[in-house]
Amino acid sequence: MANKGATGSRSTLELFRQLRQSRMTIFHPRDEKCSTLIQQLERIGCQTVSLWPPTAELPEKTDLVIFLLNAEASNRKKLPWLMPDSPIPLIGMIEYENPTILDTATTLGCHGILVSPTQPHGILSTLIMAIHHFHEVRTLQKRNQRLEQKLQAANEISAAQAILARARGISAIAAYKLMREQAMLKRVTVEEIARAIVHAEGTLFN
């Protein structure tokens, strides 16, 4: 665990480094609130592109989007980049901290919120936390997918073991050994052998 903590702090530094090379797209009307935001982003060292109204296509190589999130924006026709499984972090800039807007923000899949008008302080923290959690969630999703596949395979293996043990009158351990031998012989995975056994049983007896 201590080791994990150490790598965690290194990766936060890594986030800071990435931030200085990040290209950010800002969808916000060009007013004073927008320039306060952009000035602070540039002080931090980010590269920004500011557009209004929002475009359906993001500028090339956009690493992060900050967009004005208000009632009108949420009623507007769907923007293709604004979706819960966005491949880049999305930060909504809101004017009202009320349940309607915050619910919209979470439903749309925002990773962070800035409250308008922004102050120079607070922007850096929001960026770092949004990017950090974005990556955490992506990592966890991938791990979750892998675990689901593994679990599925484990279920199939134990089902196949039982079928084989019953059919041959051998122990579950011996059944597994047999499946593994078959897998090696046919140069496929044990999971595939197991799936074939389960499938064959279904075909033969149902």
Binding site: F16, R17, R20, I44, G45, L124
Partner: peptide
């Protein structure tokens, strides 16, 4: 020139 947000 000052760069107060420089990390690396």
């Amino acid at each position: 020139s000052p760069d107060p947000y420089l990390v690396t």
